[in-house]
């Protein structure tokens, strides 16, 4: 850990609290959207897009601020870039394969 001055740390703490509040608000929005989704008869696709978008924003906040990813070293980025690529390959290729099947033609 690099040496931080007390003022610097206090500044960071303010940021963490801000992120904390943002996360709580976003959680409330997710739940509200989830409930509205049933009452407003939103299409499933719209519900998924809203739900996942909020989750991605929340995830970015946690990873970026709590896990310090926004000012992390390039080496970590490279590892995570490969991971992200393979993650999406794993998520998407099976489903693409499934949808292009001889039995559905």
């Amino acid at each position: 850990m690099s040496e931080h001055s007390v003022e610097e740390v206090n500044k960071h703490i303010k940021k963490y609290i801000g992120v904390f509040i943002a996360l709580l608000v976003l959680t409330a929005i997710t739940v509200a959207a989830g409930l509205l989704h049933t009452t407003l008869q939103m299409s499933v696709a719209v519900g998924i897009i809203i739900g996942l978008s909020i989750a991605i924003v929340k995830g970015t906040l946690v990873a970026g601020y709590f896990m310090h990813l926004f000012d992390e070293k390039p080496l970590i980025f490279w590892i995570l870039a490969f991971m992200a690529f393979f993650f999406f390959v794993l998520l998407l290729l099976p489903i693409i394969t499934q949808s292009d099947s001889l039995s559905t033609m």
Binding site: T30, A33, G34, I54, G59, V62, M67
Partner: peptide, 25 residues
């Protein structure tokens, strides 16, 4: 402590995705 924290945030992160995917969608 920093490493433990990283792991704990990750656990939080997984939940952030599990929650809407299982409970809301």
């Amino acid at each position: 402590i920093e490493c433990t924290g990283l792991y704990w945030h990750f656990v939080d992160l997984v939940w952030i995705f599990l929650f809407p995917v299982l409970y809301l969608l």
